[in-house]
Design a protein around this nucleic acid. Structure first.
Length: 488
RNA sequence: CGGGGCGUAGCGCAGUCCGGUUAGCGCACCUGUUUUGGGAACAGGGGGUCGCAGGUUCGAAUCCUGCCGCCCCGACCA
């Protein structure tokens, strides 16, 4: 077949790239490390964006937009932050081109050198906190609950479509609060929003937890993360929410007067999810036949395929079904292409992950029925034409639930426990997945384990029970188990 | 940035070792005919600075040098 996908069992990375390309989600671009997000891929991101945007607004946040460029000096104001990002920044040094004196195209005009270089934002804490300095004077100005949808650039060594690209799309929330408690609650609230989005919309179960000091965001006092498990047994950090303490307030001198007329530094959070979620979505559900999308994030939820080809009878029925479904908020595509045969279309829509396919042929119509096929299970059945729209609505819900359930079962089956280092290493290397083990809490041990097994601490789960134990490597006392895994 | 592999049509590849007419094949694309309930068949057709730049040669996809890009594995990272 023309569009054969490399099976997961043969080469997982190649499988992933095949899905991205053959489902028409993204292409490589002329720019190293940057992808072109194609309409189908972008539509998925739009669905995610719209839903998240609604959730942010429902929790009191508003959108704003800050510049793409950050003066170089801003980056150096928060020590940990610059340490974390400096190595991977794109830098603008000039503002003009000129014709090459030798006549071959254009060159940078050396006389157009910027007095201060501009950094293409890798994240916007610094430019935003520099702005908040002017916006916050009084406790009455707080909290500031602002989000921006933007692109950022991180000059990564190795890139993969959606999972890691030099430029990516994301949202970044940056909030300012009067108290430490309020800021921590904000970071936790968003942490919950992310987890709810992952599970309810992406049908992707996640572990909620806190990052170890070593894995924390550069400049944060606490990083809350949602961690998902991909089908190859590697973990993927899907969304982080940071409690930044007063680090940025102090670096950018953002103070407010409290009700007692005392000057205080404000407390901060920042949080983000990116187009990486599209990659997570692919790797959570898809199979060797192509993309599988959860109905709630499928730009097209139902495709109707006339069999063997469109006729006026069939199209009349298809149009009716479409309009019934549209009224119920379901998006529907009727494939009216007369040239391609049904078998081709079936394979094509399976590749593209459309959750439900309705086949309508003369034989079906004679029996007053249609053929309904599920993408996730690849099962199909004949259904009476009466009340078909109601049935599809239920079916889509069922598919959404079943995808989550399947992913959860996989995650649970690939979450194990280790109490000695030999077992730990075997689990990490042979089985993969999350391994729950005791950790003595030191970065030194964390790094040693990573060096020996390539597994990192994905998170200290929120629901980790206090349990006396000893570190899986060093044997030092430990209070609770943490989750280890190899990660993307 | 280190190790490995690879750059020939939109995609996948052969040809490169051993230089020699007009650079091939499959898929995709266009036209037509016959087809059409799980990726149709036939016929005709379009599409290439052989990654880029130098060099060797009567002659370079093929040999030499340099560069660039992509993929995989590491280190770094959302």
């Amino acid at each position: 077949m023309a569009k054969e996908i490399t099976p997961r069992s043969e080469d997982y990375s190649k499988w992933y790239l095949d899905i991205v390309r053959k489902a028409g989600l993204a292409d490589n671009s002329a720019v190293r490390g940057c992808m072109v997000i194609k309409p189908t891929g972008y539509a998925i991101w739009e669905m995610m964006r719209d839903q998240l945007d609604k959730m942010f607004k429902d929790t009191g946040h508003v959108n704003a937009y800050f510049p793409l460029f950050i003066p170089k000096s801003f980056l150096s104001k928060e020590a940990d932050h610059v340490e974390g990002f400096a190595k991977e920044c794109a830098v603008v040094t000039h503002h003009r081109l000129m014709s090459n004196p030798d006549g071959s195209g254009v060159v940078v005009d050396p006389s157009a050198k910027l007095a201060e270089e501009l950094i293409v934002r890798p994240t916007s804490e610094t430019i935003i906190w520099n702005t908040y300095k002017d916006w916050v004077k009084s406790y009455r100005d707080l909290p500031l609950l602002i989000n921006q949808w933007a692109n950022v650039v991180r000059w990564e060594m190795r890139t993969r479509p959606f999972l890691r690209t030099s430029e990516f799309l994301w949202q970044e929330g940056h909030t300012a609060h009067a108290t430490r408690t309020e800021a921590i609650e904000e970071a936790q609230l968003i942490h919950e929003v992310y987890a709810r989005f992952a599970e309810d919309y992406m049908a992707m179960p996640v572990i909620k937890g806190a990052k170890s000091a070593h894995e924390r965001f550069a400049g944060a006092e606490e990083t809350y993360t949602i961690e998902a498990l991909m089908q190859d047994g590697k973990a993927l950090q899907a969304g982080t929410s940071h409690f930044l303490g007063q680090n940025f307030a102090k670096a950018f001198d953002v103070k407010y007067l409290n009700s007692d007329n005392q000057e205080e530094y404000v407390w901060a959070t920042s949080w983000g999810v990116s187009t990486r979620l599209v990659g997570a979505l692919i790797m959570t559900h898809s199979d060797d036949e192509g993309l599988i999308l959860p109905p709630k994030l499928a730009p097209i939820q139902v495709v109707i395929v006339p069999i063997p080809r469109p006729s006026s009878d069939i199209l009349a029925v298809a149009d009716k079904i479409k309009s019934d479904l549209n009224q119920k908020g379901i998006s529907v595509l009727i494939d009216k292409d007369e040239k391609k045969r049904p078998g081709f279309k079936f394979a094509e829509y399976e590749m593209k992950g459309i959750p439900v396919r309705i086949g309508i042929g003369e034989r079906d119509l004679a029996k007053n029925q249609v053929e309904v096929a599920r993408r996730d299970t690849r099962s199909k059945e004949s259904r009476p034409l009466d009340n078909i729209a109601e049935h599809i609505v239920l079916l889509l819900d069922q598919i959404q639930d079943s995808l989550l359930e399947k992913a959860r079962t996989f995650r649970d089956e690939n979450t194990t426990t280790a109490d000695d280092f030999k077992t730990f290493k075997e689990l990490i290397n042979d089985k993969g997945g999350f391994v729950s083990a005791h950790w003595d809490g030191t970065t030194e041990t964390e790094l040693k384990i990573k060096e020996l097994t390539k597994a990192s601490i994905r998170c200290i789960p929120n629901d980790a029970e206090l349990e006396k134990g000893s570190d899986v490597l060093t044997g030092s006392p430990s209070q609770r188990r943490v989750l280890f895994a190899k990660a993307y």
